[in-house]
Amino acid sequence: MCIVADKVKSVSEVVRTISDGSHIALGGFAIARNVITVVHELIRQQKKNLTLSQCVMGMEADLLVGAGLVGRIILGGGSLDRFGLLACVNRARETGQVISLDYSSLSICFGYLAGALGISFIPIKSLIASEVLDRLEAGPAAEELRRMKCPFTGEDYLLLKAITPDVSLVHVQVADREGNCQIDGPRWENEEQAKAARRVIAITEELVPTEHIQRFPERTVIPAHRVEAVIHQPFGAHPTAVFGCYDYDADHLKLYVEHMKRPERVREYLETYVLSTRDHWEYLEKTGGLKRMNQLKANRIFGY
């Protein structure tokens, strides 16, 4: 069968197309399906002054902020679940190293939805009557928020400006060479986020023939015509989990947290696992290689 367009590219060539100052939407959630492959390459290429947005930030955002690539974050919240807090993100918020626009999960998701629908704003009934909104209105997000009454019912609403990222990065279980992306398990804001963005870059665990996509089209969350490039990287989200493929690497997450909670050790982590590795394969070798990855492989019934 002929392939319409082969979008498979290497991570380094894709990252070269992301310019300094870009607004990047990250596709992970805490310790699940983080776009580690691309994050590492962004750090290797030393991008500058990025804006990040996401409903619930995780290790991917923490790495980028820790490496000093980020000027602004737009977020609902974030953590590494029971492994700990986002030490780099929190420190950067405390010192003012990043401008932090703290929303809620739903308001970020609604912002992406408006972007995806091509409408310039969206009304919402949360955030009202909280310091979250007071701070946003008093800060750099003032121009992105309005209050109004519904012209039909008179009810009070907050209006959020649409969020339209320059690039959306999403890690998926399965994609074909044309860019049809299938996601297994919950999808958090992946669909709204990707469809709100100007460009979508997918990182896939497995590259499958289009016939496989055609056999299960109901699993396709982001279809090919919305996807600009596909990066094929098995264990590409390590040490975060990919449902149905592998579990999170608890040992490495603990090691990460231990490093990042001390500012003087951030550099050490980045040197060892990112800057001194040429690509994700070398990173995987450093974190335990084939033996470790095999231990993390998901049980076929449980998905972890």
Binding site: L75, G77, G78, S79, L85, S104, S105, S107, L127, V132
Partner: peptide
């Protein structure tokens, strides 16, 4: 942390 879905 932050709000996450808490405020909503």
């Amino acid at each position: 942390n932050g709000s996450s879905g808490g405020n909503d």
